[in-house]
Write a protein that binds this DNA or RNA. Structure first.
Lengths: 210, 210
DNA sequence: TGATGAAGTGAATTTTGATTCATTAAGTGA
DNA sequence: TCACTTAATGAATCAAAATTCACTTCATCA
């Protein structure tokens, strides 16, 4: 009587969900939020529009999950850096330049997730991850202050917020699709990206260094 | 034959335009972009919905003008500070803390203009003014480098961008209507605002100081 | 004052996608 | 296989505002 899903079905459902998520992410990577329409996602994932709603309660929920998955990975990367036991000054530099370099690897996606105008609910989810990022930066700053590498007279929370705002803002220009050189094949070449990341990290480090 | 507007009419038209603009601004000040609907603006200005379109080609044009007027004033204030002949270090501090303090005077409006999710066209206009602000900050940074007050090894354009992103980001929390203490009557008291502005300016100055 | 050009009006239309839901297909257990 | 449950479909519906426009009112000028 009681209906039990078989493994096989369970797996197919999970796969459908993943495909929808992947299609959504892919569309944002290609065309930003403008492409992020439920009907587009559905056809990219090879399902009907209505089916998307069997897996996600709303468009916003779907895209918030896309953003969460991508953002959480970045938070994890920063956390690992903050934890690695090296000197705080070095860690702050590495954290920032790594974040910048990683963002530059998929510029269109990073632009959408960081800066592109989007609906309120997605925008609110952004804040959550900015906080999470800021928290990791703050940990590094605090440790630096304790170890005497950084100025002790600054509020670490404010400093971290400013640093995060600073490197995010400095990314907007380079990430922007409006940018002339947006689709140069070697997106400015790895060495240019490296140089940019270094510059940005340098300025941010200076804000707290002794 | 040819119809010539009299002074009287010209004045009334100009006045209508101003009233619409003022009403639009007022609505954003009160309820952010959520309240910024053409029909609301019209009734607040005491005209019919359709009349708004006699004065502005579209909603976006109307609100871009609102944003421009307010933002340009801020740019002018910064420009005056950059030009005042005092030491660059002092000027940078004054520029940032003044910006923060002024934003805190009308938090809801500042939040809408700086951070609140809004339509693409308005968001694009924001960028223009961020650039303009960044330019003034860059002038101060450059002069500081020339005078030897600031580190000469940083790219002034990147440094300015980071500084602007930094203090803008650090404003978002304090400005946000989501904030618990948003409508405390004395919005945290002038001395708290002053302290915050000072802290933010301090960190930003540190980013470029020698 | 009458003829004509502008301005003002606001209900109706348009637009843009998200969301629903009646229907069909597929899976389950006896 | 049958009776029943869940999944999938996609055209139709809905929603929320911006925008239009046929009509009314006001201004100008001979």
């Amino acid at each position: 009587m009681a209906y039990r899903k078989t493994e096989r079905v369970e797996a197919r459902l999970a796969d459908n969900r993943q495909r929808i998520l992947a299609a959504a992410r892919e569309l944002v990577s290609e065309g930003g939020w403008g492409e992020a329409q439920v009907s587009h996602v559905a056809s990219a994932a090879g399902v009907a529009t209505g089916s998307v709603y069997r897996y996600f309660p709303s468009k916003a929920d779907l895209f918030v999950e896309v953003l969460s998955v991508v953002s959480q990975r970045e938070v994890d990367v920063l956390e690992a850096i903050a934890d690695n036991g090296d000197s705080p000054h070095q860690n702050l530099h590495v954290a920032i330049s790594t974040f910048v370099a990683r963002a530059m690897r998929n510029r269109r996606l990073a632009y959408a997730l960081i800066a592109e105008p989007c609906e309120k609910e997605i925008d609110e989810a952004r804040l959550v991850y900015r906080h999470a990022i800021s928290k990791q930066i703050m940990r590094i700053v605090k440790e630096g202050q304790e170890r005497g590498e950084f100025r002790a007279d600054l509020d670490p929370s404010i400093a971290a917020t400013i640093i995060v705002g600073g490197f995010m803002e400095s990314l907007i220009g380079p990430l922007s699709p409006l940018n002339a050189d947006f689709d140069a094949s070697g997106p400015q070449g790895p060495e240019a990206v490296h140089a940019l990341a270094g510059q940005i990290a340098e300025v941010c480090c200076a804000a707290v260094a002794r």
